[in-house]
Amino acid sequence: MTTSLADVASSGATLRAFLHGLPGVDRVGADQRAAMLGTRSIKTTAKAQAIDLAISMVDLTTLEGADTPGKVRALCAKARHPGEGAPRVAAVCVYPDLVHVAAGALAGSGVKVASVATAFPSGRSSLEVKVSETKLAVAAGADEIDMVIDRGAFLAGDHLKVYEEIAAVKAACGDAHLKVILETGELATYDNVRRASWLAMLAGGDFIKTSTGKVSPAATLPVTLIMLEAVRDFRDATGRQVGVKPAGGIRTTKDAIKNLVLVNETAGDDWLSPDWFRLGASSLLNDLLMQRQKLATGRYAGPDYFTLD
């Protein structure tokens, strides 16, 4: 990291000055660019390639109050073997208290265990609780932590508080990867999305993630576009590569492919792998599998032939 960037978090004032010095984002222009990329027509061999790539990037997620060990085990089984010939997904994402169940069910599969933490989804708790929850999830076997930022502090202009929390949670992660959820639906403007992205990267996040899935809008294409621009520019500035995870609202193969087109034409090849791009979703996987089968057989698929887990 360059000296100037290392210093930006030395005070609230310098951090604010840096974040507000980033180029602005014109909403209409960003929306148009994302919409235009959304018209790319991905067919035949490219589609087959995209579907398998998308499956390998899925963070298969269940984040319900009604989650049980049985539900998590079923999801893990699907994560290991999504379908005939299909690649395995990237990770299973659960609440911290179910991490041990997922870790057991996924042992040796190569599928990562991801856990939300830090008083997900609102983030409204003390730093001590957030750090403790992170440590517990890691201790229970989480490979990845999906933390939420304090949107209240961000919107109140207390960027330093957000930064310090992310840094503290990162420290608590140890070897686990940290995904920082910006909850872009609550940040309201694209300028804020860009600033929050840089804030999360400066504070040490390994991934930046759009949403909890509990707030609408969640992962829209323009928001993902802006975050992809941010990781691209951050690597140019610092040499460090950060991943991107849109999550929430990605339900169809078409949605997934649009996301891959965004990656391809914004950040480029280096991000086209599960190490650097994830899709947080639950129902998306079956649609990907159905489309995959359609390509293989030439017939449209039916939902009865795909398992609901």
């Binding site: 790319r40 027509s41 991905i42 067919k43 035949t44 061999t45 490219a46 589609k47 390639q49 995209a50 790539l53 891959l260 391809n264 480029g268 090849d269 086209l272």
Partner: peptide, 10 residues
């Protein structure tokens, strides 16, 4: 060559 080549979509 890019990793993700778009097939012709005429």
């Amino acid at each position: 060559m890019s990793m993700f080549e778009y097939a012709p979509a005429p």
